[in-house]
Amino acid sequence: EEWMVEKALMVRTGLGARQIESYRQGAWIEGVHFKRVSPSGESTLRGTTWYNYPEINKFIR
C-alpha cells in the first residue's frame, strides 16, 4: 500500500490525528508525503487527504 487515508496511517504508524496534522503542517511535503485529491481526481484543498506511507516511513527513519 503506497497511498492511504489518515485512519489507515494511524493504524500503521501509531500516530494520532493531532500528530499527523502537526507533521502535515510542518515537516511533511505536499505531493511527497501527502496529497489532497477531490472525487473528480483533481488536486484541491478540500479533497480527501492521502498519505504516502513509504515516504513517511523513510522520513521517520
Score class of each variant (00 low, 15 high):
residue 40 S to M: 12
residue 35 K to G: 03
residue 1 E to T: 08
residue 50 W to C: 09
residue 3 W to T: 00
residue 4 M to E: 03
residue 4 M to T: 03
residue 28 W to D: 00
residue 51 Y to R: 00
residue 53 Y to S: 03
residue 34 F to M: 03
residue 38 S to A: 11
residue 45 L to N: 13
residue 44 T to I: 08
residue 9 L to W: 02
residue 8 A to D: 15
residue 53 Y to L: 13
residue 41 G to D: 10
residue 54 P to T: 14
residue 48 T to A: 09
residue 33 H to L: 02
residue 7 K to S: 15
residue 43 S to N: 12
residue 34 F to L: 02
residue 60 I to A: 03
residue 27 A to F: 10
residue 3 W to Y: 02
residue 34 F to W: 14
residue 60 I to F: 10
residue 60 I to Y: 04
residue 3 W to N: 00
residue 48 T to D: 10
residue 26 G to Y: 13
residue 39 P to H: 11
residue 48 T to R: 07
residue 1 E to Y: 09
residue 34 F to N: 00
residue 40 S to I: 11
residue 7 K to F: 10
residue 12 R to I: 12
residue 42 E to Y: 06
residue 2 E to Y: 08
residue 51 Y to G: 00
residue 19 Q to C: 08
residue 32 V to T: 06
residue 42 E to P: 09
residue 41 G to K: 08
residue 33 H to Q: 03
residue 38 S to K: 10
residue 43 S to R: 03
residue 28 W to G: 00
residue 14 G to A: 04
residue 38 S to W: 11
residue 4 M to R: 01
residue 58 K to A: 10
residue 5 V to A: 10
residue 40 S to K: 08
residue 55 E to S: 05
residue 51 Y to Q: 00
residue 18 R to F: 09
residue 56 I to T: 01
residue 46 R to K: 13
residue 58 K to N: 09
residue 48 T to G: 07
residue 44 T to H: 11
residue 4 M to V: 11
residue 5 V to P: 12
residue 14 G to H: 05
residue 7 K to I: 09
residue 2 E to Q: 09
residue 54 P to S: 10
residue 42 E to K: 05
residue 47 G to C: 12
residue 43 S to A: 10
residue 4 M to F: 05
residue 39 P to N: 10
residue 61 R to N: 14
residue 55 E to W: 03
residue 48 T to M: 10
residue 9 L to C: 03
residue 41 G to E: 11
residue 52 N to H: 06
residue 7 K to H: 13
residue 34 F to A: 01
residue 49 T to W: 15
residue 20 I to Y: 02
residue 2 E to A: 07
residue 2 E to M: 09
residue 45 L to M: 11
residue 2 E to D: 11
residue 40 S to N: 12
residue 37 V to R: 06
residue 53 Y to D: 01
residue 29 I to Q: 08
residue 38 S to R: 09
residue 7 K to R: 10
residue 5 V to N: 15
residue 27 A to G: 09
residue 50 W to G: 01
residue 35 K to V: 12
residue 37 V to D: 12
residue 43 S to K: 05
residue 46 R to Q: 15
residue 33 H to W: 03
residue 18 R to W: 13
residue 55 E to N: 06
residue 61 R to K: 14
residue 39 P to Y: 10
residue 40 S to R: 06
residue 23 Y to N: 03
residue 58 K to Y: 07
residue 49 T to N: 06
residue 3 W to H: 01
residue 15 L to G: 00
residue 5 V to E: 15
residue 59 F to Y: 07
residue 57 N to S: 13
residue 5 V to Y: 06
residue 22 S to K: 13
residue 47 G to I: 13
residue 31 G to E: 05
residue 46 R to H: 14
residue 33 H to M: 03
residue 58 K to C: 06
residue 49 T to C: 10
residue 19 Q to V: 06
residue 42 E to T: 10
residue 45 L to D: 15
residue 52 N to V: 01
residue 21 E to Q: 10
residue 3 W to E: 00
residue 2 E to H: 09
residue 33 H to T: 01
residue 42 E to V: 09
residue 3 W to Q: 00
residue 60 I to S: 03
residue 36 R to C: 15
residue 9 L to V: 04
residue 24 R to S: 07
residue 5 V to G: 14
residue 26 G to Q: 11
residue 21 E to T: 06
residue 1 E to D: 12
residue 35 K to M: 10
residue 17 A to V: 10
